[in-house]
Structure formats: C-alpha cells, structure tokens
C-alpha cells in the first residue's frame, strides 16, 4: 500500500533505557491498593523477627547488676570513660574516612558516568569485592605486614588506631558509598547540568562542588552515613590488630561492668544509626521529583 510506503526501516534512534520516572510512579499507584493478605503477613512476620530481639535486648538492658529493673545501665554509659574514649576514636576515624570516601567517590562516579560508561559494569563488580573478601583475611594480612614493617613505619602508621585503620575502612566503605552516590547521580540529568555549567564558564572543580554536589547531596549524605555506620560497626580488623575502637570496647565493657551496660550501648548505637538513615530518607523524599526514598 503506497500510504505506508518507503523507508519503513529508517529507524529512530534508540530510546534511553530509563523510562520517565513520573510515568512509573503513576502506573504503580494506579494498581488498586487493597491491603493484601500476603503483604500484611510478611510485615507482621518481619516485625516480629526484627523488632522482637531488639525488645528483648531492651528488657535485658533494664536489668541492673543488683537484679532490679531501672535505667541505671544507661547512666553508666555516660560515666564509662573507656567507652567514651573508644567512641571518640571511632568517631574520628569515621569522620576522616567519610571525607576521604566522598572526595574519592564523587568525582569518580561523575567521571565514569560522563566519560566511560562502559566501566560501570566493571566497577559494580569491583564494589562487591569488599563485601565478600573476608575481613578476617584482610586483618591477617595486615598483621603480617605489621610484623615485617620497619620500625619507623610501625610507629608512624600502626601504632595509632587512626592511622592504622582509616585506610582500610576507606576501602571497606568504598563499595557502599559508590552504590549510594551512583544511585543519586543516575537520578539527575548529569550531562545537561555539566554542559550548562561549563557553558556558563565554570571550572571542573566548581562544577563539581557548586552544581553537582547540591543536586546529589542526599545521596552523598547517604554515603556518609553508611560510612559512619560501617566504621562504628567494624570489629574484626580492629580486634585482630588490637585497636580499641567503639565496637571492640562494647565487647570488652561486658567483662568489666556486666552485660547490662553492654546491651544498653548496643541498643543506643543501633538507634543512633537508624535515626541517621531514617532522617535522611525524609530529606531524600522531600526533594522535588524524587520517586524513591531508596538510599542505597
């Protein structure tokens, strides 16, 4: 039929793989929303499984060493100077690690998205490594290194938790941060932003700090919080290398003050990190056009 004539195959350029987000959202919402039985079931089960032990722990933490109930264990946390010192050490490590991680990851992600999208898959593969490489093996290697290092290196690096641990925590935190920041960068129209900023005469540096960073700040915050969580939680390497960090001290504090304090501290620390992430999810959701509160 001539009406349909010539050049049918003249193909349109490929479409981007990403469907416009608003459409998705609308369609998903358009399913009739009945509170389905299977959803309710799994939420109840999940709640029991995940909240139950925390409640049990809370009850446990209320038992004082005298056998009575009370909040005394929580009071003791504040007074315990060893715990406080360990917490400061860990916070210091966390802060430095977080800064280093963001400085390393953000430009890398931007660069890869703009210049070398082919590397994305490779990087995603690499970012899995630290999840699966046993930290205990890493720690063993470090101990070996320490044993064979010249004295000046030992006193320079290994003698302090700060210098001894930070580099490795950076490594451990890289993959999670990469995922978090990459999720954020994927959600913005990076190319247009960069081109616009360039055409207005910004340098690469100010493009990064003034244009991209504000647009992915939630993702960056997510990366920071996860890094902090990781540093506050990592115990294997620190333990083997005999550094006294917060989680190591939590384990040890039990031997000194009884398990009540120990459990009290762990509950508080869990709540603290949960609070960080939960608050962040509101920041993320408030942003215009945000379709997902997913951080990671």
């Amino acid at each position: 039929m001539s009406a349909t004539g010539g050049n049918l195959g003249l193909a349109a350029r490929g479409l981007g793989a990403i469907e416009p987000a608003p459409d998705r959202k609308k369609r998903r919402a358009s399913r009739r929303r009945r509170p389905r039985l299977w959803r309710v079931t799994i939420f109840v089960l999940a709640a029991i499984y995940f909240i139950g032990p925390q409640l049990a722990a809370f009850k446990f933490s209320l038992v004082l060493s005298s056998g009575k109930y009370g909040l005394g264990n929580y009071g003791q946390i504040v007074q315990n100077s060893a715990l406080r010192d360990a917490l400061f050490t860990s916070l210091e490590i966390s802060a430095i690690t977080a800064v280093v991680v963001v400085v390393l990851v953000l430009p890398t992600v931007v660069w890869i998205r703009l210049r070398a999208p082919k590397l994305t898959l490779l990087l995603e593969g690499i970012t899995i490594l630290p999840i699966v490489i046993p930290p205990v093996v890493l720690a063993a290697g470090l101990e070996q290194l320490e044993g064979h290092s010249p004295q000046w290196l030992v006193s320079l690096v290994f003698n302090h938790a700060l210098t001894g641990l930070t580099p490795f925590y950076v490594i451990l935190a890289l993959p999670f941060s990469y995922r978090a920041i990459d999720t954020g960068v994927r959600a913005i129209d990076l190319r247009t932003l960069v081109d616009a900023s360039r055409s207005l005469g910004s340098s690469s540096f100010s493009t990064l700090t003034r244009v991209i960073l504000p647009n992915v700040q939630t993702a960056v915050l997510g990366a920071v919080f996860l890094t902090v969580a990781l540093c506050l939680g990592e115990v294997v390497i620190a333990n083997i290398l005999l550094y006294v960090t917060f989680p190591v001290e939590i384990i040890q504090v039990g031997q000194e003050t009884g398990p009540g304090v120990q459990v009290a501290v762990s509950i508080l620390s869990l709540l603290f990190v949960f609070g960080l992430l939960f608050a962040l999810s509101f920041l993320a959701g408030r942003k215009r056009g945000a379709t997902s509160t997913r951080l990671i």
Partner: peptide, 15 residues
C-alpha cells in the same frame, strides 16, 4: 533498510 518495507509496499504479498 528499505527492504524491510517491501512486504507492505507490495499488495499481493501483504494480502
């Protein structure tokens, strides 16, 4: 690519 359109352009083939 114009070969792809022949079935449509040729009435007998299309019918």
């Amino acid at each position: 690519m114009s070969t792809e359109s022949t079935p449509l352009a040729d009435p007998s083939a299309q019918d």
